[in-house]
């Protein structure tokens, strides 16, 4: 869901650049307060893994593909602020080195996938985790949050396209949300598989708060 240059109007992309820089600054300060030693290499491994899996597009309905966004996965391991930073790192590398997502749209992409995807998704995960006890809470939370994060991110993306005059909301929103309801199932399968594996091997790597 990487928005290229040209889809967003100058008002929308410049506004989201400002908002995203502010959010990332806030996240960096927040992460410093909770940063444990093991989280430093985990930031590297999570960023690398999410970059790698984002390259593995899987087919969905009608000659369309989807790939992991990874926001919820990163936030379950590193917390909402660490997760948001990891996704921003992936997006910056993808934009600058691989021309995936436009430079003007980078602020919007960070807003969508770091803020809505990782931090918003974490909120859903955290709520479910508090309601359902133990490892089951983590896995149930991960599955719902992963799916929700993809649908929410795609809906926000549709709103940005509409605000930019690129595609009217009544067309863009059902189209974006509709296809991402399916892509989100892939997000859930990958997220639950990875978190389930981490729970078995190294449960201490799951962010606790």
């Amino acid at each position: 869901m990487h928005i290229p240059d040209g889809f967003l109007s100058p008002g929308v992309w410049s506004g989201l650049w400002v908002v995203s820089i502010a959010i990332l600054g806030f996240c960096l300060r927040k992460v410093k307060a909770v940063l444990q030693d093991k989280m430093i290499p985990l930031m590297g491994v999570a960023a690398a893994f999410i970059f790698a899996v984002q390259m593995l597009n899987f087919p969905v309905a009608g000659a369309t593909s989807g790939h992991l966004l990874g926001g919820v996965l990163a936030a379950i391991l590193l917390g909402p602020y660490g997760g948001a930073i990891v996704i921003a790192i992936v997006l910056i590398i993808q934009c600058l080195i691989f021309q995936d997502g436009g430079l003007t749209a980078l602020g919007a992409n960070i807003f969508n996938m770091s803020f809505i995807g990782a931090m918003g998704g974490y909120l859903v995960y955290h709520t479910i985790r508090r309601a359902v006890k133990g490892d089951r809470g983590i896995l149930v939370g991960a599955s719902f949050a992963a799916w929700f994060s993809v649908v929410a991110t795609s809906s926000i993306c549709a709103v940005e396209l509409a605000l930019s005059g690129t595609s009217p909301l009544k067309i863009a929103l059902p189209a974006m949300a509709g296809i991402h309801v399916l892509i989100g199932i892939g997000e859930t399968i990958i997220t639950v598989f990875v978190i389930g594996t981490v729970l078995k091997m190294r449960p201490d790597l799951i962010y606790k708060k």
């Binding site: 889809f7 390259m55 000659a63 369309t64 593909s65």
Partner: peptide
């Protein structure tokens, strides 16, 4: 990996605004 367009690209193509994103900064 699948080389089909992703969700956003698919919709851009179907709804006729794909060419707006063809330039790069």
């Amino acid at each position: 990996a699948s080389s089909s367009p992703d969700g956003l690209e698919r919709i851009a193509e179907d709804k006729g605004f794909l060419e707006k994103g063809e330039g790069h900064i």
